[in-house]
Amino acid sequence: MDPTAILDMAVTIALILLSLSFLLTIFRILRGPTLPDRIVGLDMLVAIAIGFIAVIGIKTRYALYVDIAIALGLVGFLATVAFARFVLSRGKTEDDILTESRNAAQRAAKDARRAAGNNGKGNT
């Protein structure tokens, strides 16, 4: 069999595999459940996109794609670093935020009840 034909077939197989992994990673990003999970997913998405660009570069024999891949890698790295800083500066997990809002709601309900009780006492 002709080597170029084999390469063409390999490129097609690789594109299918990469598309599948794109879909799986996007499912993880949508699913979460926490912010770091989504960040890992986005990081992985950049890695797959770089792979995609390399495969497209082989398919089209257009050498400029290498520069795009490197630039995307740089941007992806910076984005992950920035996201990590954001996780650190937010300083609380999704569970913390849930508990906080639940506590706040309870406190508000209690305040409202007390206010209503005072009003009733004032009227009599």
């Binding site: 390469l7 390999a10 490129v11 197989i13 690789a14 594109l15 595999l17 990469l18 599948l20 992994s21 794109f22 799986l24 990673t25 499912f27 993880r28 890992v40 997913g41 992985m44 890695a47 797959i48 792979g51 390399a54 495969v55 082989i58």
Partner: peptide, 16 residues
Amino acid sequence: VVIGAFFALVASIGLL
């Protein structure tokens, strides 16, 4: 190309 794409797929299955 095939091996690299396979590892990318494995990584995303692992993520899942």
